[in-house]
Design a protein around this nucleic acid. Structure first.
Lengths: 263, 263
DNA sequence: TGTTGTGAATTCCTTCACAGCC
DNA sequence: GGCTGTGAAGGAATTCACAACA
């Protein structure tokens, strides 16, 4: 789900499995909600329900962090919040820059959940000179020319790319050259990065396509149901079939380069 | 990565592993790019590189779809595009509704990649009456009151939730009741849905937290390096530690309910 | 008694390596 | 000779089920 090119073999970072790391934020959210309601302790069963996983998985996940629970009782909410936060590195301040302040970039800049978890938007950067100086979410947009300076001055190590696909690799290269070593990519491209740089990708159209797959399957089951297999009716040997959407935008079959959005 | 509550045991839908389904859109994108450059055939090695995976994995993935390649030659680009599109259900038209037209909802509505893959934005829905009628991305926003009618009239089966966290479950319930059976959730909540409904989640703050984890680990390795283990310095038994961000928005430790954004 | 923590079993995914075919 | 398709091996993630223990 992450790592652009660098075929890092899904390292078990510091002994904690990737799959577990990916769930820690979920637990953390559920725990913080409990904390706000001043719930002192929680069982694996309850917490698992709140996080939407099963309790055995949750207990195993926590076992990688240490033995933070009490048998017969459960987990101390505040303590766990602290431990998970520390494990995730959220007890420190992470300045991030957002590059590409279109619709999506603006949405990200306005997102409150950032600051509430140790992430601080250090700068907004856009290539459009007419954007420069315009405040978005209270932060003035700066021009791409200043990218390197901004990164270095703020000690930024995490960058968010919300540019069109065409610009993403170039922006990525500049970020990395300037010292960024973790990138969250919203552009619909596979980014190439040197060893040691982490890339995670958020790709809207991929999520929709996966949903469509399951949706189609459901529809098929309903219809068929009876005998034989579901093998599709062997298709035209070499005929490309394009979409046949109804209305809506168009801007090239797939090269995308959307006005502003994720894939 | 999907399914809110419904603990569906990661079914291998129609024999194709979930992990493979999740990669098909990646291949499709790479293939479409090749198609545009009029490249007639491609080897597993080349295509894998373009999609950012390794070639053995790609070949195995394709083997679940059928034998669409030619030994000694490679894959016919157009043909594969068609086969994958069909497998994903993209050869048909999928009307979707977007609920919650804040910054993010607007970004989604403007996203071109939608239409280019069989997804058609059938309607934009928001709870704010003052939004009603206002066009976003050329589509007039409609009020939540009309949700059920819109779903039914357009035969919508895929819904996108881009509301604040507090409204998400309620919106979800209404969508499901009206007939939607696949949901893409951008709100930072675990959604409960009945059996048979698919939920996928896109959660920005989770992605950032995962990056922070790895970033922290990198920093730690640099520093340490030498002897002993990396076990952290046992922490204060029951003291919650809050962020210490610098500037930035605030709106409650975690309950989130952001102005408009994903988690 | 009630709940954690964890070995063992299971299932799922990835990678290897090579036979089969063009 | 080159490249696909796939059994088989290896590894990772999940789940089971129960001993340990407050």
């Amino acid at each position: 789900m992450a790592t652009g090119r660098t075929h890092r073999p899904a390292t078990r970072s510091r002994g904690i499995p990737e799959a577990t790391v990916a769930r820690l934020p979920l637990y953390l959210r559920a725990l913080t909600a409990l904390s706000e309601r001043s719930v002192p302790t929680v069982s694996s069963e309850e917490l698992a329900a709140a996080a939407g996983v099963n309790s055995a998985k949750l207990r195993k996940d926590f076992s990688y962090l240490g033995s933070y629970g009490t048998r017969g009782v459960g987990y101390d909410v505040e303590y766990l919040v602290y431990q998970i936060s520390r494990e995730l590195g959220l007890t420190q301040d992470w300045p991030v820059v957002i590059v590409g302040i279109g619709n999506l970039g603006a949405a990200l800049a306005n997102y409150g959940g950032f600051a509430s978890r140790g992430f601080r938007v250090a700068a907004l950067i856009d290539a459009d000179p007419s954007m420069a100086g315009k405040p978005v979410a209270g932060i003035p947009v700066q021009h791409t020319d200043e990218l390197e300076e901004i990164i270095r001055e703020n000690g930024v190590s995490i960058g968010v790319i919300a540019t069109p696909a065409g610009a993403a690799q170039q922006v990525c290269d500049r970020l990395v050259a300037a010292g960024v070593s973790s990138i969250l990519n919203f552009a619909p491209t596979v980014l190439s990065v040197p060893e040691g740089v982490d890339v995670r990708k958020v790709d809207l159209s991929i999520e929709l396509q996966i949903l469509a797959f399951h949706e189609q399957r459901k529809a098929g089951e309903e219809a068929a149901g009876e005998g034989a297999d579901t093998t599709p009716p062997a298709a035209p040997p070499a005929a490309a079939v394009r979409r046949r959407a109804g209305g809506g935008t168009e801007q090239g079959p797939d090269g995308d380069v959307p006005a502003v959005m994720p894939a």
